[in-house]
């Protein structure tokens, strides 16, 4: 997804800090409201994006990278909303395997994302992680 030559793309850059997660939620709420989504589906996208940013903020804190940024990109297609959230929060460990009995907020957040959107992929990128999610509009 690139913002050049993409008339339906929106890009937002925010500090990777707790107080800015609400800004990302507000932005995606505006974009999702333009889709043929139900009220609940718009809320799903807002919550999923909030959770993805929260996980980035948590890792930035753990890795001492609170001065980094989150870049949120969204693209509206005829039948879906695609959102990418890139962070520079450093590598993510696998805490769920280390403490399988712990219901950590991060695990809950990841669970929520998978329940709220139709597709989600999480891939490492330079200095951080990219989360890509897709929500399809019902026909």
């Amino acid at each position: 997804m690139g913002s050049e030559n993409c008339p339906t793309c929106v890009e937002l850059r925010i500090p990777c800090k707790p107080e800015y997660v609400g800004v990302a939620r507000l932005a995606i709420l505006g974009v999702a409201s333009r889709m043929r989504f139900s009220y609940d589906e718009v809320e799903d996208v807002r919550l999923a994006v909030g959770e993805a940013c929260t996980i980035s903020v948590d890792w930035a804190k753990k890795n001492g990278r609170t001065e980094s940024e989150i870049v949120l990109r969204s693209e509206v297609t005829p039948d879906s909303l695609v959102v990418e959230i890139d962070d520079e929060a450093g590598p993510r460990g696998d805490e769920s395997r280390e403490n399988p009995s712990e219901q950590e907020p991060e695990n809950l957040g990841a669970l929520l994302i998978t329940l709220l959107v139709d597709e989600v992929t999480v891939v490492p990128r330079d200095g951080g992680t990219r989360v890509r999610m897709v929500k399809y509009a019902r026909q």
Partner: peptide
């Protein structure tokens, strides 16, 4: 108006 997984974790 809005509640996320961090809040759920605190409540748990």
């Amino acid at each position: 108006e809005y509640l996320d997984s961090t809040a759920l974790g605190v409540l748990i």
